[in-house]
């Protein structure tokens, strides 16, 4: 190991760890009228308010929290009694009212964008994602193929997809394959 990959920390040199995004080297991928790319979530933390403490959490953060399946600002509904705060500074004092877990590197975040994005997802996700039912800012916890998925509509033809980081390769494979198969039928 050369010295070039070492950095000085305290009194001795240690290995400098290189940041690697979950889908690094796999994306972007475009096919037909759809484009799949990776999103940089930045800092993300799950917030699970203790029983009866939702009001206190909202007050401490100075913002309202969304209802089930909705988004408010940087906070998205994430699971039963749990929210995901994306790119937000969470004060330590919030720990009094909620269980907070750093999720920053735990999820692979992708964006699927384009006129046929809904059609691609219709092949993989077992919920109704049409604009009339699933509007901008709506989100859901469901499946992508057999993988766990958190999906948010971020625009008229754009979705943010979150799945476990460990499944990033399969996630990209499943979606890009659905894109290929859809394009082949057109």
């Amino acid at each position: 190991m050369g010295l070039s990959c070492m950095i000085r920390k305290g009194v001795r040199p240690v290995v400098e760890l290189l940041a690697k995004s979950p889908a690094e080297g796999l994306l972007p991928y475009a096919k037909g009228a759809v484009e799949l790319s990776e999103l940089a979530l930045g800092k993300a933390a799950s917030i699970a308010p203790f029983k009866g403490q939702l009001d206190a959490v909202e007050k401490a953060l100075g913002q309202g929290f969304p209802k089930v399946g909705r988004t408010t600002g940087h906070v998205v509904w994430f699971s039963q009694g749990q929210y995901l705060a994306i790119a937000m500074d969470i004060p330590d004092a919030l720990g009094k009212y909620a269980a907070i877990t750093d999720q920053s590197d735990a999820w692979c975040a992708l964006e699927l964008k384009g006129a046929a994005a809904e059609d691609v997802l219709a092949r993989l996700v077992p919920i109704d994602l049409r604009q009339s039912q699933f509007k901008r800012g709506h989100c859901a916890r469901t499946q992508l193929g057999h993988m766990p998925l958190h999906i948010t509509r971020t625009g008229n033809d754009a979705f943010r997809l979150l799945s476990f980081r460990s499944m990033a390769g399969t996630m990209v494979h499943e979606i890009s394959r659905a894109m290929d198969l859809l394009a082949a039928r057109r």
């Binding site: 089930v68 399946g69 039963q80 077992p126 919920i127 859901a140 916890r141 469901t142 499946q143």
Partner: peptide, 10 residues
Amino acid sequence: PVCGERDRRE
């Protein structure tokens, strides 16, 4: 009761 009607596979 939280998410609404969903497919059995979930």
